[in-house]
Amino acid sequence: MAIAAGPANDEFSNQLLPAMPEPTTDHRLVETGDGSHTVYSSQFDQHYHNPNGAVAESRYVFFEQTGLVDDLQNRDSLSILEVGFGTGLNLMLLLDYYLQTNAEAHIDYYSIEGFPLQPGTVQQFNFDQHLQHPKAVDLVADLFGQISPGMNHIELLDSISVHLFYGLFDDFDPGDIQADYLFHDAFSPDVNGELWTGTTFKKLKTNSTKKTLLSTYCAASRARGAMAWAGWKVARAPGALGKREMSLASPDPERLGELNRVNEERLARRYEDNDF
């Protein structure tokens, strides 16, 4: 997860991007419970991943709970939108699953990052020890030295198009994409509240299909209320690595299967009344 924030705004910005801050160097590598690395940001006093297991939680939240791995083999094309590119781990895992399953689908992978890591930091990650195809780590690590402010378009593996936006979420305008999957992987609402508002989830809904599945590690009532206020149907799912719950959401309640739903009407009303 990572920061990709800006002031909440109901209007999508089509103006020129403001001058962007330099990538921060205020990071420290940490080994998590499954042996894989994460990054600790002293600026925001948070780790980028679950300290109990970076790779394990990302696999669980964004791939296993969503059924995305099966879709890689069954679909001709997929579009994924990620909020918080961070370490690039989710894209690394996607490439690894893609190679494992001999998938042939064309994938458009959109991601947003306001404060990209320094290439030197990324090169120290040990994610290659936790993937079947270390090539996936090298491909993604190389991106950090290539990106510049604004939208960056990079082709990977001939069939995976990466559209990495270096900038603030309010300035992100991907056009008419309709994502099949949404990875909401920003820092927690406590330090990155701008990315957990009703306005944010409403904007994400405009870039979704009726069957889009949004996944996030977060189970906070206010975050779920913001989703409900924006028109998402929201379900509780078992959390990973010691966390009691995570959240899945979709415009279509059938996409959530047999999972227990929250009371969207009540949470949306509480969000509207700022009752959290």
Rank of each mutant, 00 (worst) to 15 (best):
V140K: 00
I147S: 05
L168K: 04
F172D: 00
L139A: 03
L164V: 07
L156D: 09
D170T: 08
S161G: 13
D142M: 02
F165A: 05
D171Y: 02
V137M: 12
P174W: 05
G145I: 11
S161I: 14
G167P: 05
F169S: 02
L139N: 00
S148W: 03
V137G: 09
V162P: 08
E155N: 06
N152L: 10
I154P: 01
V162Q: 07
S161Q: 14
D142T: 04
Q146V: 09
F165L: 10
P149A: 02
D173F: 03
P174Q: 11
S148L: 10
L156V: 11
S159P: 13
G150E: 07
Q146W: 09
V140M: 04
V137Y: 12
D170K: 09
F144G: 02
V162R: 02
L168I: 07
L156I: 14
E155V: 07
G145D: 08
D171L: 07
F144N: 04
Q146L: 13
F172G: 01
D158I: 10
E155H: 01
H163G: 13
H163I: 14
Q146I: 05
S148Y: 11
H163F: 15
L157C: 12
I160V: 14
V162F: 06
F169I: 10
P174V: 00
L139E: 02
D173Y: 00
I160R: 01
D138C: 09
G150P: 11
V162H: 08
H163Q: 15
D142Q: 11
D138V: 11
L168G: 08
M151P: 01
E155F: 06
D170N: 15
Y166F: 13
G145W: 13
L139W: 01
H153P: 06
V140C: 04
L168P: 04
D173W: 03
I147Q: 03
D138A: 13
G167D: 11
Y166R: 03
D170E: 14
F172H: 01
I160L: 08
L139G: 01
L156F: 07
L157T: 11
A141H: 12
S161E: 13
D158V: 11
S159N: 15
L157S: 12
H163W: 14
I154N: 09
D158N: 14
A141I: 15
I147E: 00
H153K: 15
Q146F: 06
E155W: 08
L156C: 02
F172W: 10
P174G: 05
P149Q: 03
I160S: 03
D171Q: 09
L157E: 14
Y166W: 14
H153V: 13
F172R: 00
F144D: 02
M151D: 00
F172C: 01
M151H: 03
D142Y: 07
P174N: 07
D138W: 15
F172S: 00
F165G: 06
A141E: 11
L157N: 12
F169T: 02
E155L: 09
L139M: 03
L139F: 02
V137W: 14
P174Y: 00
D142N: 12
H163V: 12
D138Y: 13
I154E: 06
V162L: 08
D158S: 15
V137H: 07
L157W: 05
G167F: 06
E155A: 13
Q146G: 08
F165C: 10
V140H: 01
L168E: 10
D170A: 11
E155D: 13
G150W: 04
H163N: 14
M151W: 00
L164E: 04
